[in-house]
Write a protein that binds this DNA or RNA. Structure first.
Lengths: 268, 268
DNA sequence: CGATTCCTTGAGGCATCTCAAGGCAAGTGG
DNA sequence: CCACTTGCCTTGAGATGCCTCAAGGAATCG
């Protein structure tokens, strides 16, 4: 079953997306964010984060709102599946994974989140978080109480709109992942993952061709619907094809075009 | 890779969802909808539909807003991937599928939508629809212009909140589907699909144990990440196990408990 | 230094896909 | 009414891609 999904970069989307057009370029602008290292150690004043994810709409800064900043240590959970939903969380620095726990105790990774991305959107539906968020490295987040956000949004329609767009993006993002899980083989999945990380690094001012993975092979596999062994083998295969160099978690993409091509490999 | 995902019923969710609790019961109420056959042939006055999907919040009816009703014939597209986003669409009667088209022209089904469910939420993000919606049988929908909705929401915070919850549910729903696509084997996927349809039929006042599938084996397969042959074989297997009877598109579930068990089969 | 965690690699098994043939129901045109 | 087409489904046989199980290596940490 051939696949024609194509990676699309986007500001907030940790995942893939299928492009209706043949060139696969996204139709909305990719904002140029501030550098990921926070200048201020004071609580979040909103602007920086939301500039990233709400398409540059400067709604929060207008009100001079200040949200609680919080440090989260590597391995520590920011919130747990099933716990009461009170806030959205914007990643200020560091990387997170979202997981859902299966009944047998196994966990499935449903997403990775980098600076500027918002977590917790799935908690609105039921008032409890539908997934857990865990820091993959020491991180800082801004907690945005949903009650405050709602109240503020009532006075700022633009903000409300931005939040809706944010959620819509999340939906589109997950569509892309479904595509990946439903139609792609292992090489396509891993290539898609690497290219996605690459673009998100680039969007944050880092190198697109050389970066550190914060997640383990097992976490990547869980996210992609593969075993850790298959992820490892696929990395090795790409290395043998001279598409990239990989040393533990350090990745250097040598041939981005060819890696892109790994997508289309099966689209005859 | 065992799977512990569990089917959860919900008003608007055409898909699956993983429950944090061990009993797998959803923690939010399932609204009792009006009967699916519309009483009025006049344009949609909102209430009926939104009662279903917005958790009974009677926000639209308050304003006496009237949205355009539209018929869509079987096989006809309501909107196309890539076309400009103007409205959300609430299914009044009939069944729809959402699809994304891969670059090689093949289509992937990303969801099925029954009466009371809202389509088009993925269009907000970019201002263009990220998927196409096609009627699987003659259908009626209510078009809800997004501009109007936004305007109205500015005056009715409850509505805004309801829309956000709606989108959040969509996100949760897709999480569940990701789980299915990433972790479940063919039997589990097909069982999950059937149980989900069953519950949605029940929620609409139809029999939970006997119903007509509106979609083809190929569409089911596309949705579940399987080939149509595997779907067919799995139906046959379930029939041999006396879990159900299936004749073309007519399904009669004989042993709902055991079908539920097909989920947990691999969770030893 | 041992213990631990994470990763790599190999060998074999199996679930699903692929390819292929045929059946059934509904529609169409003579 | 029948012959034919068409769409959809079922079933079989073989191929294969990924998983499972297993062993061992390399970095990290106490």
């Amino acid at each position: 079953m051939p696949a024609g999904a194509r990676l699309a970069d986007s500001s907030c989307m940790p995942s893939l997306q299928v492009s209706p057009a043949s060139d696969g370029r996204p139709s909305w602008p990719v904002p140029q964010p501030d550098l990921p290292t926070p200048a201020a150690k004071t609580p979040c004043s909103g602007g920086h984060l939301w500039d990233l994810c709400l398409g540059g709409i400067d709604v929060l800064r207008l009100d001079g709102l200040v949200f609680a900043r919080r440090r989260v240590k590597e391995g520590q959970a920011l919130f747990h599946e099933g716990s009461a939903f009170h806030s959205l969380y914007a990643v200020h620095s560091g990387t997170f994974k979202s997981t859902v726990t299966l009944r047998d105790g196994r966990e499935q990774v449903s997403g990775f989140h980098m600076s500027g991305e918002v977590m917790g959107l799935d908690g609105l539906a039921q008032g409890t978080h539908a997934s857990s968020a865990t820091a993959l490295e020491d991180a800082e987040i801004c907690a945005i109480p949903y009650a405050q956000l709602t109240e503020l949004a009532a006075r700022k329609p633009l903000l409300q709109n931005a939040v809706c767009r944010l959620m819509s993006r999340e939906i589109v993002k997950e569509h892309g992942l479904m595509m990946l899980l439903g139609r792609m083989n292992a090489e396509e999945r891993v290539a898609a993952f690497l290219l996605n990380v690459s673009q998100r690094m680039k969007a944050r001012g880092y190198s697109a061709s050389e970066f550190h993975l914060r997640m383990s092979r097992a976490e990547i596999g869980s996210y992609l619907g593969l075993t850790l062994e298959t992820v490892s083998r696929t990395f090795s295969a790409f290395q043998n094809q001279r598409l990239l160099r990989i040393d533990r978690k350090h990745v250097r993409i040598l041939d981005l075009q060819a890696l892109q091509g790994a997508f289309d490999a099966r689209v005859q």
